[in-house]
């Protein structure tokens, strides 16, 4: 039985915690959060402990699950590694490449598992698309488009709005797509991007990013924190022998509209896409099973760093107006 402590009691911390409670080989021991009241509230909801300090949490667990704002990852990961704990760390792994390197080094030195939570790999539509691509269903991929986003995200201390912390939608959100693109189509060679990030707008951000992959394929990534019409995801993989297209707006097997939504007038139709196993559970299950078996997980810390590298290159392109070449690429 692996004992787990979750750091950070925001949406993702609670989602991860719920997954651990359903696993036969893990036990959720408790939470730590600098916001002590929130930590206590969440802990009592789960019937577990709220630790007074991160150090106290580390003394009672085998696994640390880090769900805090990005710039805090480095210190939390290094301390966990030094204490010999296995680590699941939310994406993006680090705010800078140097931070990522330090985390990887600390985990490697301590001989512990460090897995970045690139959960998109457990979303069935994205995993299936990759399986189809690798099976040659579209021939050679040529033009790939992804879109992700919706309203501007709100969280504790409005930290998403602080670029120094979050890196904006390019680092915080479409890091998912960058990881999936690498996983499915291979490494990126160069990136060119435009964004609203540095235009001083109030809670509106948006980026359009073009990647040239080493395979020759071209990928277009949209990062949208400017759509009040709700969160949407889509992708399209066009190859020389076919195309795969997915649009979250059309993948809604259940839609409910209530006569009175409480506002007096009629309600808005709310679409749902229920799954037997949610991707977050599958992600946590894979991580725990890997740790239990002493096997490396399918997502490495290096994968987490490579995705950060693409995101930072895109941000650099936005800032300089230039094409940015990646990782000593061709």
């Amino acid at each position: 039985m692996l004992r787990v402590g979750v750091v950070g009691v925001g949406t993702m911390g609670r989602t991860h915690a719920a997954a651990y409670t359903r696993l036969p080989n893990a036990q959720l021991v408790g939470f730590y959060d600098m916001a002590t009241e929130a930590a206590q509230r969440t802990a009592s909801q789960f019937g577990v402990k709220a630790f007074d300090s991160y150090g106290a949490l580390l003394q009672e667990v085998d696994i640390v699950d880090i769900c805090t704002p990005t710039p805090t990852h480095l210190e939390l990961v290094v301390k966990a590694a030094e204490a010999g704990k296995h680590i699941l760390c939310e994406k993006p792994l680090g705010r800078t490449l140097q931070q990522c390197e330090q985390m990887i080094e600390a985990a490697s030195k301590a001989g512990v598992t460090l897995m970045p939570a690139q959960v998109l790999r457990f979303f069935p539509e994205f995993k299936q698309a990759r399986d189809l691509v690798l099976a040659g269903a579209v021939g050679t991929p040529v033009a790939i488009r992804t879109r992700r986003g919706g309203p501007y995200p709100r969280a504790a201390n409005d930290w998403y709005a602080d670029f120094e912390q979050s890196g904006g939608p390019i680092l915080d959100m479409v890091i998912h797509d960058f990881d999936w693109l690498r996983w499915t189509f291979g490494e990126a060679e160069r990136v060119f991007a435009k964004a609203l990030t540095f235009k001083g707008l109030d809670h509106i951000d948006y980026a359009l990013i073009t990647l040239r992959l080493r395979s020759g394929a071209i990928a277009h990534v949209e990062a949208n924190w400017a759509d009040p019409g709700g969160f949407k995801v889509d992708f399209e993989i066009a190859g020389d022998a076919g195309m795969i297209a997915f649009d979250s707006r059309h993948a809604t097997p259940l839609t409910v509209a209530k006569q009175d939504a409480g506002g007096g007038g009629g309600g808005v139709a709310v679409p749902e896409s229920p799954l037997a196993e949610d991707p977050y559970f599958l992600e946590i299950q894979h991580f725990v099973d890997s740790v239990a078996a002493g096997q490396p997980p399918s997502i490495t810390a290096e994968d987490g760093m490579k995705a950060v590298e693409i995101a930072l290159a895109a941000i650099e392109s936005v800032q300089t107006g230039k094409v940015v070449r990646l990782g000593g690429g061709a």
Binding site: V142, A143, F192, G216, A217, I218, G239, D240
Partner: peptide, 14 residues
């Protein structure tokens, strides 16, 4: 970014 990946011809298709 331009390519000829769909048709593999002497003309651009992407």
């Amino acid at each position: 970014e331009i390519s000829n990946g769909f048709c593999h011809g002497d003309f651009d298709d992407t």
